[in-house]
Nucleic acid binder design. Structure first.
Lengths: 139, 139
DNA sequence: ATACAAACGCAACATTGTTGCAAATAATTT
DNA sequence: AAATTATTTGCAACAATGTTGCGTTTGTAT
């Protein structure tokens, strides 16, 4: 596990430090999105707030994670599946927010349907945000 | 104009005050979404920050405006066309953020395509966020 | 016009995000 | 393996953004 984590960091040209290992581990454990505050809490009081900000930013820049806009003004971050490595781009995809448990997940399998824009508008990226009840809360 | 504004406020069971009239006027003038900071700036130094917060919240609750999540963690607000009056709900719709001018608009005419979720997931609301270049910036 | 209810501004505070810099840690070189 | 270099970290200080309580002002209803 530890080895895997270091590998991922190196593959993304990130020097491996205890903070980055810990935060990446959180992402790997939790199959969902994390807000900054989640990370602060779960990482214990071990790391400075600033470090968390900078780590997330570094992860973002390397394309290890991507950000998910939410309605409640708290950006969440989630691992990119097949490292959107290289640039910042990642394929359009669908995010699901459960209104029961509050969990946010990426629905990687679900494709974003094509959309018809008015004349003159050009689309670059499409983000879909579905809210509802997730699998575990429905059963 | 002033009459129209008062009418809208009354229709939504909001007492008409100078602050609310001013902010509603901003929304009517600007055919796009406004962030809290926009409103503070454009309203001049006339109103307290707290008043703006509370006004937006009141407008939200009455269904006069709705909030639009954005990627940069700055919630924007836009008038609901046919007052989503009554409750908080408004129909699913598409928001467009122009990467050139930064303007955010609701594409009311564009319908959100149906989406196929994995088994066990139930959708309640769908939000689409398209980024790209808008009509005026494309010409 | 008066009484009542709601909204306002102010102050104080909590939370969230940013920046500069010295010390600590990781990567690289010898 | 030790020394050099580059990066990251934590701290402190700050800026921006939200929130709450409360006395005063303003709107609404009688």
């Amino acid at each position: 596990m530890d080895r895997k984590i270091e590998e991922i960091l190196k593959r993304n040209q990130l020097s491996v430090t205890s903070g980055r290992k810990k935060i990446l581990e959180l992402f790997l454990q939790q199959e969902g999105a994390l807000a900054h505050s989640d990370i602060e809490k779960r990482a214990g009081e071990k790391f400075d707030r600033v470090t968390v900000y900078r780590t997330l930013q570094a992860f973002l820049e390397k394309g290890l994670i991507h950000s998910i806009p939410t309605a409640d003004n708290s950006i969440r971050y989630a691992l990119c599946k097949e490292n959107c490595s290289g640039g910042h781009h990642h394929d359009d995809h669908v995010h699901f927010v459960c209104s029961a448990c509050g969990n946010t997940v990426c629905l990687e399998g679900v494709t974003v349907p094509p959309i018809h824009l008015p004349k003159g508008f050009t689309a670059e990226q499409v983000e879909m945000l579905v809210s509802g009840v997730c699998k575990s809360c429905n059963s």
